[in-house]
Nucleic acid binder design. Sequence first.
DNA 1: CGCACGCTTGACTTCTCTCAAACGCAGTGG
DNA 2: CCACTGCGTTTGAGAGAAGTCAAGCGTGCG
Lengths: 235, 235
Amino acid sequence: MKRGQIDAAWLGKAECKTCGIRDLVLFADLQEADFQLIHVPIEEVLIEAGGFLYQAGDDGVAAYTIRSGLIKLMQYMPDGGQRIVRLLGSGSVAGLEVLAGGAYEHSAQVLQPALVCRLPREVVERLNRETPRLHRQLMAKWSQSLKLADEWLTDLNTGTARQRLARLFLHLANLTGEEPIRLLGREDVGAILSLTTETASRAVADFKRQGVVTEVSTNCFRLDRDRLDRLAAGE
Amino acid sequence: MKRGQIDAAWLGKAECKTCGIRDLVLFADLQEADFQLIHVPIEEVLIEAGGFLYQAGDDGVAAYTIRSGLIKLMQYMPDGGQRIVRLLGSGSVAGLEVLAGGAYEHSAQVLQPALVCRLPREVVERLNRETPRLHRQLMAKWSQSLKLADEWLTDLNTGTARQRLARLFLHLANLTGEEPIRLLGREDVGAILSLTTETASRAVADFKRQGVVTEVSTNCFRLDRDRLDRLAAGE
DNA sequence: CGCACGCTTGACTTCTCTCAAACGCAGTGG
DNA sequence: CCACTGCGTTTGAGAGAAGTCAAGCGTGCG
């Protein structure tokens, strides 16, 4: 593992009150007084591609708000292979399951350099206990995760390899918001779409040849949304 | 639709305090005083196979606790077909997303006659606002749903048709707890495993011929768990 | 410069889908 | 009582898609 060591930089104590994306995140509804309840520091951390937020089975001590970057949540399958069950971008929360006690369900690995806020379990628990304003956001985040999981299943795991890939491109597009899009390694694409690396590679290559996507630089693509939409629906 | 009409029987106002499976359900931690907060009646309803708890897109006015029976949550795919994203049995909660506002994400249809408790949104919201004892259970239920969704993806949507079917049998076994197991229609099996009805049928027929499962009566099976375990892992 | 790693491509096998027909059971009506 | 009929299941044959194994390519890094 070339990049095994923790490529993480501690950036200091986060200032939630002045957070630029606060309306997107878990603490959206908190008010001045609520922040007085935070007695354990919330840290802001930058993690390089390849680094981990946590590993499946680790004892859950913190949840994470993703400020920027891209993170994959993966699970290990019966046969040892890995399956990517979700991609998280700006505004998402990772590791909420620590609030339900116990260990992390997934391994969370960074795909594109990520700026995250580390929310110690006790902070979230305390806020949740003492102010009702967090409840709504927590519900929203849970429900959002679940919705994402269900869409993942219906969108990225049905139809032919090409249909799934087209849907993945579109998913990535409105996850990151901007073009061109940085695609993942072929192995990851396979792990998302339930395909082998080879089939994923073939499908991407096909798209490139047919001009449905255009590679502007290594693994960065500009999309022809109309054609992707049609492909996603099945021709 | 022969059974289209609402095959539901209203059984009366539920008595949560004396509920036999209360330690399994959402209200597990509530105390005597908390029940005073319930001003809108919680109804107990029996729904026949084929009936719906709610339909995707309906305005969400209640969540449901499942006391017994089996319920499928389904979503409609881009091409109009339906996809089953979860199965709910005793102790599960359906329609929690109403707490996050908005409409139901799925259609919830009954597979095996179900006894459910209807929890009006305002009841859950009020309890959640006024007593912290519901929080933990709500977290637990959310987290449980999400875990189930992820397992669904990794277990029932990877590997060959036979592997998936084997895993489905095992899933059903520890969902209902007892043998023999009532299997679903082949179309539903297909909608769960991302297979066509024909492939699902062939796989089930194979299992019967090889004695991995034994049909004791129409669509009721006794399982050879050891062999299913081995099949699930891939021979 | 050369090695390593990930991506691409090819040939072949295997599995699943598709289309079509036959079967079996249950309910209906003569 | 039995033929008729509707619906879900089973089975078959052939086409098509993805998996497998193996080799070749390209880029970046030591």
